[in-house]
Design a protein around this nucleic acid. Structure first.
Lengths: 186, 186, 186, 186
DNA sequence: AATGAATGAGCGTTCATTCAT
DNA sequence: TATGAATGAACGCTCATTCAT
């Protein structure tokens, strides 16, 4: 009998530990050795759980996207009025700012390498984006696709601003404005 | 005026030719050989004009940002009313969609590598972002920083949507909405 | 203008220097680093001249086979009678014993790796063997294919004996016997 | 008699199952994992029965050589005249062609790695070759060492021809000729 | 100014081997 | 006895960079 290890559970633990690293340095700039060292295993172990670097990255993107959706749903389910929900969304973004910046970096990275002969199996990825939109739709209870897009793009824009600039406008303030806009336009 | 003018002009030509390559594959994934081959010179020549890969990339980011500003100013200077300007901004984004996507990729890439012990000289970069904001400010003649941020973030969000999704909402439609919002809130 | 180097000539020089190494250790057991070190270049240079290890080995086999044929033809062309030729063949084998052992090792190695999903382009190799046979045929002026085979197989058997055993029978003695056999059977 | 008998018997079973694998890919090209997988045990088990890869290979060579000798003796013991024996030898070679090719590959491999700082304990190997020769000597009842060598080398040459060429001369035909030669020369 | 041959550190990955179970 | 997860040195190969021409 081999060492008793929940292979799948451990795999996901390793994935979680990789998140920061990939976000900080980008797919091509990290090395497998760095990853291994940083998460405290040997390269051999890394390859025991992931076929190669590409597979590791793809599984990371999927796992993070899955986690993100779960978090968001859990967080926002307790709200009632549109007003409340916009505020909750804003709070959620503000509180997990770093997380979302990292996720954004991951996604952009993923798109970049997806187009260059690699990572084609990514049906799961585009799908994740769609689920996201659908989720906003369900959650905010907005019908107009232009408005949904507005909310999504503004959210992403806010995150991007955080990444690109040193001092950014407060997310809360933006959300107050967003709330006003939505209230008027629905 | 001996060769020094030609040298600088040629350097900028080389930079322009690198833009697509860096945007498509990302800083770390591209090799100097690929770049050289793609733009039709030898690696030796590349190193004759740029101290190293990092310097090449930094100069590229600066050059592209500079060009972008020039383009935008030229394009939008002929407008008058706020209504017109919003429309012009929307048209500008829509017409240069690919260009802005590439620029976004470049910027994200730049931020990623800037934090990892390299590319510290990037005062010029943060500065570029500020100029951008200032330019929107001057151009749209909006005082409220929250509103400026809204315009910038929505623009970036739109570009990001283009990158991440297959089918996106029309930029024009979004701008119609944006126009309405701004008109009401000013 | 780059360093002036006759690329093809230098490539062949490198190949010649690899011969002993591949024969001694076998294809899979040598490393590219060992080869590079042993022939006095860097691994980078090795890869500048050969696409990969497999290609290096294939070119080596072809080059050695080609050289071998040239040597043999040059050596044996000056003989007249069958008697003389058998003696010359024996002398040739005896004098280049080490060379032929190495060639045999190369060939066996080649066959082994050729069958395992790699090295399929080896039309040139089987062809080399046929040329060899044809050359013996032309040279010894023997019609009977059974006799040709006898000569070839005995030659190879002699070489193999050299490889497998510590003390072997003298090649010359064997050739005296061979000569007698051929004289009788023609 | 506790488990020691089973242990040894199982060890030899494992060895037998390795034969094809080593012959096909060669010592260095095969991995312990491949071997384990192919013969249906874990790598742990492999290391339970063999100290390391080298030991496994050495024991394989010895075991195969031992088996070969047994087979040959059994097969050829029932013959009487020289004529019969030559024919029996030919038939034996022809019927076990694949086996002999594999054995040849093993031997060549063994010699190659024996010289490179490893596998020095190979007294048993050279010894095997000598036994082989002695056995031919006893069996064919030939005194002249030159003739013995002829028979051995021709046999090995025939096997080698099988390995190196696609279509080879029939072993039987060669043996008819060999028979004639021997008859004349004794 | 321009070339591309040369370098060697470092990359992704593999593999013989160990050892807790 | 038997397993397979874990290790890390070493593999084939790449790449930013240098430099003789």
């Amino acid at each position: 009998m081999p060492k008793i290890v929940d292979h799948d559970k451990y795999r996901k633990e390793l994935l979680s530990k990789c998140f920061d690293l990939f976000a900080q340095k980008g797919y091509s700039a990290i090395t497998m050795r760095e990853i291994a060292q940083d998460i405290g295993v040997s390269t051999g172990t890394l390859y025991h759980y992931f076929a190669n670097k590409k597979a590791l990255f793809e599984q990371l993107v999927q796992e993070i996207s899955r986690q993100n959706m779960l978090m968001a749903t859990a967080e926002l389910q307790k709200t009632q009025t549109l007003q409340e929900r916009i505020e909750a969304l804003g709070r959620f973004l503000a509180e997990n700012e770093d997380y979302f910046i990292k996720q954004l970096l991951l996604w952009v990275n993923f798109c970049q390498h997806q187009d260059s002969k690699e990572m084609r199996l990514s049906g799961g990825f585009k799908c994740t984006i769609k689920q996201y939109q659908q989720w906003i739709y369900d959650f905010l209870n907005i019908d107009d696709p232009v408005l949904i897009s507005l909310v999504l793009n503004l959210s992403n824009g806010l995150i991007l601003e955080r990444l690109l600039k040193d001092e950014s406008i407060s997310i809360t303030e933006q959300c107050v404005l967003l709330s006003k806009i939505l209230t008027i336009n629905i």
